Simulated assay, not measured.
Amino acid sequence: MSITTFGTERERVNSHEQSFRTTLGRYASQIALAPSIALTVVFVYGFMLWTIYISFTASNMMPNYKWAGLAQYVRLWSDPIWIRSVVNLATFTVLYIGLTTIVGLFLAILLDQKIRAEGLLRLVYLYPMALSFIVTGTAWKWILNPGLGIEHLVRLWGWEDFKFNWLIDPQYAIYTVVLAGVWQASGFVMALFLAGLRGVDEDLVKAARLDGAKAPAIYRRVILPLLGPTFLTVVVVLIQQALRTFDLVVALTGGGPANSTHLPATFMYRAAFERSQLGVSAASAVMIFMTVVAIIIPYLYTSRRKNHNE
């Protein structure tokens, strides 16, 4: 082989290597993400589709792929515990969103006054959000226990007739879940509102003050109307958290007393692993999923439309 031919061959090899490196660099991110995407498709979306299919089969203790139509959904909506869990979810969601929003907004307005030790107070308010729901539920279970917590402490102070037994009262137990949930999420909501408050145009506030408006009127008529997107975000996030509340109930009440604090997520787990009703559990999972989709799609559509108009 001549020197000229060898040089041409070497240039061709180098050209191929350069082209391969260029192609590899162009698609490096896609190649790196490919395993994660494959695992997500199989273990997330694949199991989602499997769950939807199982909800239309005759599955009971074990998967049974015989088509049964809407039979599992009929069984689901005929179960009094499921009906109770749906009612509990409505009660929990309304109170959870309302109280958390009020407390979070109040704390944000308080910190927005440029008070001393703002950093320390913000850390204190955000600390509960760093705890897991299991820890929160366990702590509030001790606090609300009639023999150990608030009732016992107040009686030691001399009020021997004082009663605060919501934790063991089926009529009021769901409100203990609300109380613990509000305590944990208020700091996060405060952070969202505080970011919104710090983003308000100071010129509008100054103009309102020049017109003689007091602080309450400024917040009510100027600042709060500008926080509409923040309110929407807070509501959507809290609804998602309410729908997937599981470990807080497990740690605090375990679904009791007398199944009075079950939520759809805890019902789904109990149906699958304690009552051996795989099909009913799958049907309840589909109902939860459809509820989330019904909330997320309008939110995404509204956000996209707003960004498009801007």
Results as ranks from 00 to 15, higher is better:
Thr245Tyr: 08
Leu226Met: 14
Ala217Val: 12
Gln240Val: 02
Asp247Trp: 06
Arg220Asn: 05
Tyr219Ala: 02
Ala213Asp: 07
Asn259Leu: 07
Ala215Lys: 14
Pro216Lys: 00
Leu252Asp: 01
Pro225Phe: 09
Lys214Trp: 01
Ile239Val: 15
Gly256Ile: 01
Asp211Pro: 10
Phe246Met: 05
Leu243His: 04
Leu238Glu: 06
Asp247Ser: 13
Leu210Tyr: 13
Val235Ile: 15
Leu252Glu: 02
Val222Glu: 09
Ile223Val: 14
Pro257Lys: 08
Val222Thr: 13
Leu224Lys: 12
Arg221Val: 05
Gly254Thr: 02
Ala213Arg: 08
Thr230Tyr: 05
Leu238Met: 12
Val237Thr: 15
Arg221Cys: 14
Asn259Pro: 00
Lys214Arg: 08
Arg209Ser: 09
Pro257Tyr: 09
Leu227Val: 11
Gln240Ser: 13
Pro229Tyr: 12
Ile218Gln: 06
Ala215Val: 13
Tyr219Val: 06
Pro229Ile: 06
Val250Gly: 01
Asp247Cys: 08
Val234Ser: 03
Leu238Thr: 04
Val236Leu: 15
Thr233Met: 11
Arg220Lys: 15
Leu248His: 07
Thr233Pro: 00
Leu224Cys: 09
Arg220His: 09
Val237Cys: 13
Ala217Cys: 11
Thr253Lys: 07
Leu248Gln: 06
Arg220Ser: 07
Arg244Tyr: 03
Gly255Met: 02
Val250Glu: 07
Ala251Arg: 00
Val236Ile: 15
Arg244Val: 10
Gly254Tyr: 05
Leu232Ile: 13
Thr230Ile: 15
Leu248Tyr: 04
Phe246Ser: 05
Val249Asn: 03
Pro257His: 08
Ala258Ile: 05
Ala215Arg: 15
Leu224Met: 15
Leu227Pro: 13
Pro216Ala: 00
Ala242Met: 07
Ala217Asn: 07
Arg221Leu: 14
Val235Glu: 05
Ile239Cys: 15
Val234Leu: 06
Pro216Met: 01
Ala217Gly: 00
Val249Glu: 01
Arg244Glu: 07
Ile218Ala: 11
Val222Ser: 04
Ile239Tyr: 14
Ile218Arg: 11
Val236Lys: 03
Phe246Asn: 02
Thr230Cys: 10
Ala215Thr: 13
Ala215Cys: 04
Val250Pro: 00
Asp211Ala: 09
Leu243Arg: 02
Ile218Met: 11
Pro216Asn: 03
Pro229Met: 11
Tyr219Asp: 08
Val237Tyr: 13
Leu232Phe: 11
Val234Glu: 05
Thr245Lys: 08
Pro257Arg: 03
Arg209Phe: 01
Asp211Glu: 14
Leu232Pro: 00
Pro229Trp: 10
Thr245Asn: 13
Ile239Glu: 09
Leu243Asp: 02
Ala217Lys: 12
Gln241Ile: 09
Leu252Arg: 02
Thr230Glu: 09
Ala213Glu: 10
Gly256Pro: 00
Asp211Ile: 07
Gln240Ala: 12
Leu238Pro: 06
Asp211Ser: 13
Ala215Glu: 15
Ala242Leu: 05
Gly228Ser: 12
Gly255Thr: 03
Gln241Ser: 10
Pro216Thr: 01
